[in-house]
Amino acid sequence: MRRTPPSGSHPATRPRIGAGTSSLTGALVLLALLTFYPAAFPSFITLGVTIVLFAAMASAWDVLGGWTGQLSLGHAVFVGIGAYTMALLVLRNGVAPWWGAMVGMGASVVVAAMWGGVTFRLRGPYFALASIAVAEMTRIVANNWARLTGGAEGISLPTLPLFLGLDLFSRRVEFYMALILLGLALAVAWWLQRSRFGYHLQAIREDEDAAMALGINPTREKVWAFLASAALTSLGGSLYGIFLGFFEPRGMFSLDLSVQLALMAYIGGAGTLFGPLIGAGLLVGGSEVLRIYFPGKSLFVYGVLIILVVLFAPDGLSTAVRRARRA
Protein backbone atom coordinates (compact mmCIF):
# COMPACT_ATOMS: atom_id res chain seq x y z
CA MET A 1 0.00 0.00 0.00
CA ARG A 2 1.25 3.46 -0.80
CA ARG A 3 1.95 5.64 2.19
CA THR A 4 1.03 9.24 1.71
CA PRO A 5 1.89 10.96 4.91
CA PRO A 6 0.20 14.34 5.24
CA SER A 7 2.91 16.75 4.26
CA GLY A 8 3.80 20.01 5.93
CA SER A 9 3.19 18.92 9.48
CA HIS A 10 5.87 19.27 12.09
CA PRO A 11 6.02 16.67 14.80
CA ALA A 12 6.63 18.06 18.26
CA THR A 13 10.02 17.26 19.65
CA ARG A 14 8.63 15.77 22.82
CA PRO A 15 5.67 13.44 22.93
CA ARG A 16 3.18 14.20 25.66
CA ILE A 17 2.59 10.55 26.26
CA GLY A 18 5.17 9.36 28.72
CA ALA A 19 5.80 12.90 29.94
CA GLY A 20 3.98 11.77 33.08
CA THR A 21 6.96 10.54 35.03
CA SER A 22 9.02 13.69 34.56
CA SER A 23 6.16 15.94 35.62
CA LEU A 24 5.54 13.70 38.63
CA THR A 25 9.17 14.11 39.65
CA GLY A 26 8.81 17.85 39.14
CA ALA A 27 5.74 18.00 41.36
CA LEU A 28 7.38 15.96 44.12
CA VAL A 29 10.54 18.07 44.05
CA LEU A 30 8.46 21.23 44.20
CA LEU A 31 6.41 20.04 47.16
CA ALA A 32 9.58 18.94 48.94
CA LEU A 33 11.17 22.36 48.39
CA LEU A 34 8.05 24.11 49.64
CA THR A 35 8.26 22.28 52.96
CA PHE A 36 11.30 24.45 53.73
CA TYR A 37 9.44 27.69 53.05
CA PRO A 38 8.31 28.41 56.65
CA ALA A 39 11.85 27.94 57.94
CA ALA A 40 13.40 29.95 55.09
CA PHE A 41 10.99 32.91 55.10
CA PRO A 42 9.44 33.06 58.56
CA SER A 43 8.42 36.71 58.17
CA PHE A 44 6.57 36.01 54.91
CA ILE A 45 4.67 33.04 56.26
CA THR A 46 1.24 34.63 55.78
CA LEU A 47 2.03 35.34 52.14
CA GLY A 48 3.19 31.74 51.81
CA VAL A 49 -0.05 30.34 53.23
CA THR A 50 -2.08 32.54 50.90
CA ILE A 51 -0.16 31.49 47.81
CA VAL A 52 -0.21 27.76 48.57
CA LEU A 53 -3.87 27.81 49.60
CA PHE A 54 -4.96 29.72 46.51
CA ALA A 55 -2.80 27.48 44.34
CA ALA A 56 -4.66 24.51 45.76
CA MET A 57 -8.07 26.09 45.20
CA ALA A 58 -7.14 27.26 41.69
CA SER A 59 -6.00 23.71 40.88
CA ALA A 60 -9.32 22.46 42.20
CA TRP A 61 -11.16 24.98 40.00
CA ASP A 62 -9.03 23.79 37.10
CA VAL A 63 -10.46 20.27 37.23
CA LEU A 64 -13.70 21.70 35.89
CA GLY A 65 -12.57 24.96 34.30
CA GLY A 66 -9.30 23.92 32.69
CA TRP A 67 -9.38 20.17 32.13
CA THR A 68 -13.07 20.00 31.27
CA GLY A 69 -13.32 23.48 29.73
CA GLN A 70 -16.44 24.50 31.66
CA LEU A 71 -15.78 28.09 32.66
CA SER A 72 -17.23 28.48 36.16
CA LEU A 73 -17.35 31.96 37.64
CA GLY A 74 -19.17 30.75 40.73
CA HIS A 75 -16.68 28.59 42.60
CA ALA A 76 -16.75 30.91 45.59
CA VAL A 77 -19.93 29.03 46.52
CA PHE A 78 -17.79 26.04 47.52
CA VAL A 79 -15.23 28.19 49.31
CA GLY A 80 -18.14 29.67 51.25
CA ILE A 81 -19.81 26.34 51.97
CA GLY A 82 -16.51 24.91 53.19
CA ALA A 83 -15.78 27.85 55.46
CA TYR A 84 -19.29 28.30 56.80
CA THR A 85 -20.08 24.63 57.42
CA MET A 86 -16.85 24.19 59.32
CA ALA A 87 -17.29 27.41 61.33
CA LEU A 88 -20.98 26.97 62.12
CA LEU A 89 -20.51 23.38 63.28
CA VAL A 90 -17.71 24.54 65.57
CA LEU A 91 -19.73 27.45 66.93
CA ARG A 92 -23.14 25.84 67.30
CA ASN A 93 -22.42 22.17 67.83
CA GLY A 94 -18.84 22.06 69.03
CA VAL A 95 -17.88 19.77 66.14
CA ALA A 96 -14.14 19.66 65.53
CA PRO A 97 -13.15 21.69 62.43
CA TRP A 98 -11.70 18.72 60.54
CA TRP A 99 -15.02 16.87 60.81
CA GLY A 100 -16.79 20.09 59.90
CA ALA A 101 -14.61 20.33 56.78
CA MET A 102 -15.70 16.83 55.81
CA VAL A 103 -19.36 17.72 56.27
CA GLY A 104 -18.77 20.87 54.22
CA MET A 105 -17.19 18.78 51.50
CA GLY A 106 -20.26 16.56 51.46
CA ALA A 107 -22.54 19.57 51.26
CA SER A 108 -20.49 21.03 48.41
CA VAL A 109 -20.68 17.77 46.49
CA VAL A 110 -24.46 17.69 46.85
CA VAL A 111 -24.75 21.32 45.71
CA ALA A 112 -22.43 20.64 42.75
CA ALA A 113 -24.46 17.60 41.70
CA MET A 114 -27.67 19.63 41.58
CA TRP A 115 -26.05 22.67 40.02
CA GLY A 116 -24.24 20.63 37.37
CA GLY A 117 -27.23 18.42 36.67
CA VAL A 118 -29.33 21.45 35.88
CA THR A 119 -26.87 23.75 34.06
CA PHE A 120 -24.55 21.43 32.16
CA ARG A 121 -26.94 21.41 29.25
CA LEU A 122 -25.88 25.01 28.70
CA ARG A 123 -22.85 25.43 26.52
CA GLY A 124 -20.22 28.11 26.12
CA PRO A 125 -20.82 31.51 27.70
CA TYR A 126 -24.25 30.47 28.94
CA PHE A 127 -22.77 28.07 31.46
CA ALA A 128 -20.51 30.85 32.75
CA LEU A 129 -23.46 33.23 33.04
CA ALA A 130 -25.53 30.65 34.90
CA SER A 131 -22.66 30.01 37.31
CA ILE A 132 -22.55 33.70 38.21
CA ALA A 133 -26.29 33.72 38.81
CA VAL A 134 -26.10 30.67 41.10
CA ALA A 135 -23.22 32.16 43.08
CA GLU A 136 -24.81 35.58 43.45
CA MET A 137 -28.08 34.05 44.64
CA THR A 138 -26.18 31.98 47.19
CA ARG A 139 -24.42 35.10 48.42
CA ILE A 140 -27.67 37.00 48.79
CA VAL A 141 -29.26 34.14 50.72
CA ALA A 142 -26.21 33.77 52.97
CA ASN A 143 -26.27 37.49 53.59
CA ASN A 144 -29.92 37.58 54.57
CA TRP A 145 -30.46 34.26 56.29
CA ALA A 146 -28.95 35.61 59.48
CA ARG A 147 -30.34 32.85 61.71
CA LEU A 148 -28.25 30.32 59.82
CA THR A 149 -25.13 32.20 58.82
CA GLY A 150 -24.92 35.11 61.22
CA GLY A 151 -25.78 37.38 58.30
CA ALA A 152 -23.88 40.31 56.90
CA GLU A 153 -21.99 41.02 60.15
CA GLY A 154 -20.04 37.81 59.60
CA ILE A 155 -18.79 35.28 62.14
CA SER A 156 -15.54 34.79 63.96
CA LEU A 157 -14.09 31.50 65.04
CA PRO A 158 -13.63 30.69 68.71
CA THR A 159 -10.62 28.86 70.09
CA LEU A 160 -10.25 25.68 68.11
CA PRO A 161 -9.34 22.30 69.55
CA LEU A 162 -5.82 21.08 68.85
CA PHE A 163 -5.49 18.95 65.72
CA LEU A 164 -3.16 16.03 66.53
CA GLY A 165 -1.61 18.34 69.10
CA LEU A 166 -1.22 21.23 66.63
CA ASP A 167 -2.64 24.73 66.96
CA LEU A 168 -4.72 25.39 63.85
CA PHE A 169 -4.33 29.16 64.22
CA SER A 170 -0.57 28.88 63.86
CA ARG A 171 0.50 30.08 60.43
CA ARG A 172 3.07 27.29 60.21
CA VAL A 173 0.43 24.65 60.79
CA GLU A 174 -1.86 26.33 58.27
CA PHE A 175 0.97 26.39 55.76
CA TYR A 176 1.51 22.65 55.98
CA MET A 177 -2.20 21.94 55.85
CA ALA A 178 -2.43 24.04 52.68
CA LEU A 179 0.59 22.23 51.29
CA ILE A 180 -1.07 18.86 51.85
CA LEU A 181 -4.15 20.13 50.07
CA LEU A 182 -2.01 21.40 47.19
CA GLY A 183 -0.35 17.99 47.02
CA LEU A 184 -3.76 16.40 46.78
CA ALA A 185 -4.87 18.79 44.03
CA LEU A 186 -1.63 18.21 42.09
CA ALA A 187 -2.08 14.45 42.41
CA VAL A 188 -5.55 14.76 40.93
CA ALA A 189 -4.23 16.92 38.06
CA TRP A 190 -1.38 14.50 37.44
CA TRP A 191 -3.85 11.65 37.28
CA LEU A 192 -6.10 13.62 34.90
CA GLN A 193 -3.15 14.20 32.62
CA ARG A 194 -2.85 10.51 31.89
CA SER A 195 -5.99 8.61 32.84
CA ARG A 196 -8.94 7.56 30.75
CA PHE A 197 -11.20 9.87 32.75
CA GLY A 198 -8.78 12.77 32.19
CA TYR A 199 -8.77 12.17 28.45
CA HIS A 200 -12.54 12.06 28.44
CA LEU A 201 -12.61 15.48 30.10
CA GLN A 202 -10.08 16.91 27.65
CA ALA A 203 -12.00 15.54 24.70
CA ILE A 204 -15.18 17.18 25.99
CA ARG A 205 -13.30 20.45 26.37
CA GLU A 206 -11.89 20.30 22.85
CA ASP A 207 -15.07 19.24 21.03
CA GLU A 208 -18.17 17.94 22.73
CA ASP A 209 -19.78 16.52 19.58
CA ALA A 210 -16.65 14.63 18.58
CA ALA A 211 -16.32 13.34 22.14
CA MET A 212 -19.87 11.98 22.04
CA ALA A 213 -19.17 10.26 18.73
CA LEU A 214 -16.37 8.41 20.56
CA GLY A 215 -18.68 6.99 23.18
CA ILE A 216 -18.23 9.62 25.87
CA ASN A 217 -21.27 10.77 27.88
CA PRO A 218 -20.44 14.46 28.38
CA THR A 219 -22.99 15.27 31.05
CA ARG A 220 -21.96 12.37 33.25
CA GLU A 221 -18.25 13.11 32.94
CA LYS A 222 -18.78 16.83 33.53
CA VAL A 223 -20.77 16.14 36.67
CA TRP A 224 -18.00 13.89 38.02
CA ALA A 225 -15.43 16.58 37.27
CA PHE A 226 -17.63 19.14 39.00
CA LEU A 227 -17.97 16.95 42.09
CA ALA A 228 -14.21 16.48 42.39
CA SER A 229 -13.62 20.17 41.79
CA ALA A 230 -16.23 21.18 44.37
CA ALA A 231 -14.94 18.76 47.00
CA LEU A 232 -11.36 20.05 46.75
CA THR A 233 -12.43 23.69 46.63
CA SER A 234 -14.59 23.14 49.69
CA LEU A 235 -11.65 21.76 51.67
CA GLY A 236 -9.71 24.84 50.63
CA GLY A 237 -12.61 26.97 51.81
CA SER A 238 -12.61 25.36 55.27
CA LEU A 239 -8.93 26.04 55.60
CA TYR A 240 -9.38 29.58 54.27
CA GLY A 241 -12.00 30.14 56.98
CA ILE A 242 -9.56 29.08 59.69
CA PHE A 243 -6.84 31.19 58.11
CA LEU A 244 -9.05 34.28 58.17
CA GLY A 245 -10.57 33.59 61.59
CA PHE A 246 -13.32 36.09 60.81
CA PHE A 247 -15.35 36.29 57.61
CA GLU A 248 -18.63 37.44 56.11
CA PRO A 249 -20.78 36.34 53.12
CA ARG A 250 -19.72 39.40 51.12
CA GLY A 251 -16.14 38.13 50.96
CA MET A 252 -16.59 34.36 51.10
CA PHE A 253 -19.22 34.10 48.39
CA SER A 254 -17.99 37.01 46.27
CA LEU A 255 -17.80 37.17 42.50
CA ASP A 256 -14.29 38.59 42.93
CA LEU A 257 -13.15 35.41 44.64
CA SER A 258 -14.62 33.22 41.90
CA VAL A 259 -12.98 35.38 39.24
CA GLN A 260 -9.66 35.24 41.06
CA LEU A 261 -9.58 31.44 41.06
CA ALA A 262 -10.41 31.33 37.35
CA LEU A 263 -7.81 33.97 36.44
CA MET A 264 -5.06 32.27 38.44
CA ALA A 265 -5.60 29.06 36.51
CA TYR A 266 -5.83 30.80 33.14
CA ILE A 267 -2.83 33.04 33.63
CA GLY A 268 -0.65 30.15 34.71
CA GLY A 269 -2.16 27.78 32.17
CA ALA A 270 -5.58 26.16 32.45
CA GLY A 271 -5.61 22.39 32.19
CA THR A 272 -1.93 22.01 32.99
CA LEU A 273 -0.28 20.49 36.04
CA PHE A 274 1.57 23.56 37.32
CA GLY A 275 -0.44 26.35 35.68
CA PRO A 276 -2.71 27.17 38.62
CA LEU A 277 0.24 27.15 41.01
CA ILE A 278 2.22 29.54 38.82
CA GLY A 279 -0.82 31.77 38.42
CA ALA A 280 -1.47 31.86 42.17
CA GLY A 281 2.13 32.74 42.89
CA LEU A 282 2.18 35.57 40.37
CA LEU A 283 -1.18 37.04 41.25
CA VAL A 284 -1.04 36.77 45.04
CA GLY A 285 2.57 37.91 45.02
CA GLY A 286 1.90 40.71 42.55
CA SER A 287 -1.12 42.02 44.44
CA GLU A 288 0.89 41.93 47.66
CA VAL A 289 3.62 44.08 46.14
CA LEU A 290 1.05 46.49 44.74
CA ARG A 291 -0.76 46.64 48.05
CA ILE A 292 2.41 47.98 49.66
CA TYR A 293 2.40 50.94 47.28
CA PHE A 294 -1.33 51.38 46.88
CA PRO A 295 -3.12 50.46 50.07
CA GLY A 296 -6.59 49.05 49.61
CA LYS A 297 -7.56 45.78 48.07
CA SER A 298 -6.69 45.74 44.42
CA LEU A 299 -7.23 43.36 41.55
CA PHE A 300 -5.37 45.65 39.18
CA VAL A 301 -2.59 43.12 38.65
CA TYR A 302 -5.12 40.43 37.80
CA GLY A 303 -6.61 42.66 35.12
CA VAL A 304 -3.32 43.62 33.50
CA LEU A 305 -1.95 40.08 33.56
CA ILE A 306 -5.04 38.44 32.12
CA ILE A 307 -5.11 40.96 29.26
CA LEU A 308 -1.45 40.28 28.48
CA VAL A 309 -1.92 36.52 28.72
CA VAL A 310 -4.97 36.46 26.46
CA LEU A 311 -3.10 38.55 23.89
CA PHE A 312 0.32 36.98 23.98
CA ALA A 313 0.12 33.58 25.70
CA PRO A 314 -3.42 32.31 25.15
CA ASP A 315 -2.63 28.88 26.57
CA GLY A 316 -1.19 30.35 29.76
CA LEU A 317 2.32 31.13 30.93
CA SER A 318 3.45 27.60 31.72
CA THR A 319 2.59 26.45 28.19
CA ALA A 320 4.25 29.52 26.68
CA VAL A 321 7.42 28.87 28.65
CA ARG A 322 7.44 25.22 27.63
CA ARG A 323 7.06 26.23 23.99
CA ALA A 324 9.78 28.82 24.20
CA ARG A 325 12.15 26.27 25.69
CA ARG A 326 11.37 23.84 22.93
CA ALA A 327 11.86 26.36 20.13
Binding site: G69, L71, G124, P125, A128, V259, A262, L263, Y266, F294, G296, S298, L299, F300, Y302, G303, V304, L305, I306, I307, V309, V310, L311, P314
Partner: peptide, 28 residues
Amino acid sequence: EPIVRAPEHASILMTVGIGLVLSNLLLF
Protein backbone atom coordinates in the same frame (compact mmCIF):
# COMPACT_ATOMS: atom_id res chain seq x y z
CA GLU B 1 -9.72 42.69 17.40
CA PRO B 2 -6.56 40.60 17.89
CA ILE B 3 -8.60 37.77 19.44
CA VAL B 4 -11.52 37.71 17.01
CA ARG B 5 -10.78 34.14 15.97
CA ALA B 6 -9.80 32.87 19.43
CA PRO B 7 -12.02 30.47 21.40
CA GLU B 8 -14.92 32.13 23.17
CA HIS B 9 -13.47 31.97 26.67
CA ALA B 10 -10.69 34.29 25.47
CA SER B 11 -13.12 37.18 25.01
CA ILE B 12 -14.76 36.49 28.38
CA LEU B 13 -11.38 36.63 30.10
CA MET B 14 -10.35 39.69 28.11
CA THR B 15 -13.45 41.67 29.07
CA VAL B 16 -13.11 40.55 32.69
CA GLY B 17 -9.56 41.91 32.54
CA ILE B 18 -10.63 45.17 30.93
CA GLY B 19 -13.24 45.60 33.66
CA LEU B 20 -10.73 45.01 36.44
CA VAL B 21 -8.21 47.44 34.96
CA LEU B 22 -10.76 50.20 34.34
CA SER B 23 -12.39 49.95 37.76
CA ASN B 24 -9.04 49.95 39.52
CA LEU B 25 -7.86 52.92 37.48
CA LEU B 26 -11.00 54.75 38.61
CA LEU B 27 -10.18 53.74 42.16
CA PHE B 28 -6.69 55.19 41.88
